[in-house]
Design a protein around this nucleic acid. Structure first.
Lengths: 196, 196
DNA sequence: CCAGGACTGGGTCGATCGTCCAAGACGCTT
DNA sequence: AAGCGTCTTGGACGATCGACCCAGTCCTGG
């Protein structure tokens, strides 16, 4: 077993946990399974993490951060609000399909966070981040296209999150990427009618 | 311990498993925990079920069936398509809030089914049922209001499922019922523009 | 070059998991 | 009342879980 600094080990273990969830589901995340995936010994796990929970918390935060960052600065401005929304949502979908494991893993982590009192805050921060990103996106588009929104931005942001979440969830079940894109386009057109 | 027919015991155990997931999450569903919740002995579990999986499969099927039935014949016809969609979606939301445990449990079961190869079919049947219900709803409304849909009904049905799923998921995290209703109303108005 | 902190290996602990067994108690039929 | 399925009982099995410990090995700074 190669000798590795603890901070690097932590990163390896977090990445390994991600892969385990992606391949075998949340229930498969045991300390032993994660260590095997990372090519580390069981002892190194508790040398790097005080507990399994600590790993899960860090994994959740990192994955959320990665998703938020991946789509944060990906707002596309076209000559119409409708075109901008379409392009931005298509960009979102590109990031989902580019990293097809991230969303399933995030869903599993969210599901777990909802039932774990110690992680309740993490799930809410996750969705707060979603809403923040959605609000920023809407404001950038409104700015870039020289319009205002005819309904409160937070409400529109929630609708945006609802759409992306719902499309993603449906896609997780049937993996129909074409249908997902069609739906996203349609919703983009719908949301564009709120521009004034 | 009262003496009870095996079929009745099965029912009790399935109901108990539902309550356990609702209260403590999917991970808490152990044979012992379920038996304790049902007030049954551990041995009676494997007298009624060949395995834990058998219980989970039956629970999933029953819960999906209950949800589908609960909203199957709840289509409301108003004098406009917009009004009909609003009323129908509000009715949907009423069933969700009337049985606030069902959706969280279903989410957990879906999540589990996605990672369990033996249950992959169950999750897809679950969503097939959703789409069927959505299609029927759309056709009844179109009939009742004397209009047709300007986009294919299956595509509209998917959008309807996306909206209900997305709204529900967001509500699971922040439990903001008012925001959920606002979003549903807005989406109802949007979908109504597809009527012709 | 060497002392001390960083890291690993393997083993062990108690708890809990799903599953199963042998035997007893119940209640309906005859 | 006797017999026979039906159901309950308590305990036990092996496996696996998270967590921990300690002896030993590596590497680096002084």
């Amino acid at each position: 077993m190669p000798r590795v600094p603890a901070t690097e080990r932590r990163r390896q273990l977090v990445a390994a946990a991600f892969r385990v969830i992606a391949k075998e589901g949340f229930a498969a995340v045991t300390t032993r399974r994660v260590c095997a995936e990372a090519g580390a010994s069981l002892a190194s796990f508790h040398y790097c993490f005080a507990s399994k929970q600590e790993l899960l918390t860090e994994l959740t935060e990192q994955t959320v951060a990665a998703l938020v960052e991946a789509q944060a600065s990906k707002v596309h401005i076209r000559d119409s609000v409708q075109g901008s929304l379409r392009a931005t949502l298509r960009e979102y979908w590109a990031t989902v399909e580019a990293e097809p494991d991230r969303e399933p893993v995030l869903m599993a982590l969210t599901q777990h966070a909802l039932n774990e009192p110690t992680l309740a805050g993490v799930a809410q921060q996750q969705y707060a981040a979603y809403h923040r990103t959605a609000r920023t996106t809407l404001e950038i588009i409104a700015d870039g296209c020289g319009v205002t929104w005819s309904v409160p931005v937070p409400q529109l942001a929630r609708m945006l999150v609802v759409v992306t979440d719902g499309v993603t969830l449906a896609w997780l079940v049937d993996r129909d990427g074409a249908a997902a894109l069609t739906a996203l386009d349609a919703f983009a057109d719908q949301l564009a009618t709120y521009a004034r």
